[in-house]
Computed example of a mutant assay.
Amino acid sequence: METLDLSEECDECEDVSELCLVWKILTPKILNRIAISNILQSVWKPRSQLVISSWGDNVYVFQFSKSEDWCKVLDEAPWSVMGNLLVLQPLHLGMVISNFDFCWCPFWVQVHGLPLDKMAKKHGETIGNRLSKLIEVEALSDGLLVGRSFLRIRVELDVTKPLLQGFILHQRTQSGEPMANVRVLHKYEKLSNFCYDCGRIGHNDTSCKFISKVDGVNSGYGLAICTGVVKHIGAPYGNFQRPPVEGWNADSLICR
């Protein structure tokens, strides 16, 4: 195949990447672009013009007119429309939209059932790294985190994999004697539609191709894994900085 150099200056070319977001709606259905646009316009209430362009297969490009609107949407991600998760990615100069990877999305996860002596930032970091890519543990100090009855952890989840429901905590006394095990549960804030059979986001149990109906009955997934949003007790939101090309993390909110 021949090569072509398009590096020469062009009066019609303009770098708008810093005002654009690329996103995909995780659903097997093709949704109506106008309906989606109307929903997001009404929820986001951008201060200036927002252009939404479809690139096929539920992939879209947002082009904002003001950086404040761009930052707000990333600050308050992830979002969902009609119960379906939107996976957002910043656009960077030179990136090809068809090559975007829509696997990763940030979530706040609540960890319930930990013994009081395990309610510490370092244990939250261990749990967060087990969940996926750790972003932060909600903490005002490095001591015991007794401000809530649960640990709250920010992670980037691989949305192509099943949600982790929790784990069994093995305990021992100071002398090394075994104690009763504790069942620790994960609850995901602002969780969009997911499959109760396989635990993956982006489809329901009527269209699951990963697990049989019989096995899905005993999967343990249900509404108990979902929870509402709680107020962040750490640093205030609204300080989003444009990330490097390699990746990004943002604080989040969901739209239903």
Results as ranks from 00 to 15, higher is better:
5 D>K: 08
246 E>M: 07
135 I>M: 05
201 I>W: 06
127 I>W: 03
124 G>Y: 02
124 G>H: 02
8 E>P: 03
122 K>D: 05
37 S>C: 13
54 S>P: 08
13 C>D: 11
63 Q>L: 06
111 V>W: 00
3 T>W: 11
44 W>K: 04
108 W>S: 00
228 G>V: 04
227 T>E: 10
210 F>R: 13
193 N>T: 03
85 L>V: 07
25 I>G: 01
2 E>M: 12
117 D>T: 04
22 V>S: 07
245 V>D: 09
197 D>N: 10
21 L>R: 13
16 V>H: 06
28 P>T: 07
57 D>G: 12
147 G>A: 11
226 C>H: 14
23 W>M: 10
40 L>A: 05
164 L>K: 03
154 R>C: 04
247 G>P: 03
145 L>G: 00
218 N>G: 11
23 W>Q: 02
251 D>R: 13
63 Q>V: 11
165 Q>F: 01
121 K>D: 07
52 I>L: 09
80 S>A: 07
160 T>Y: 03
147 G>T: 13
245 V>L: 14
200 R>H: 12
74 L>E: 04
97 I>H: 06
91 L>G: 05
192 S>I: 03
220 G>F: 10
166 G>K: 00
195 C>N: 04
69 D>H: 08
141 S>C: 14
81 V>S: 00
91 L>S: 04
244 P>N: 10
187 K>M: 13
26 L>M: 15
98 S>K: 10
59 V>T: 02
9 E>V: 07
4 L>Q: 15
181 N>L: 13
155 V>I: 09
13 C>W: 15
92 H>R: 14
189 E>P: 15
164 L>V: 03
49 Q>M: 11
13 C>G: 14
206 T>H: 07
84 N>R: 06
214 V>A: 12
153 I>Y: 02
41 Q>F: 12
45 K>G: 11
141 S>W: 03
80 S>L: 14
232 H>V: 11
168 I>A: 04
142 D>G: 09
13 C>N: 11
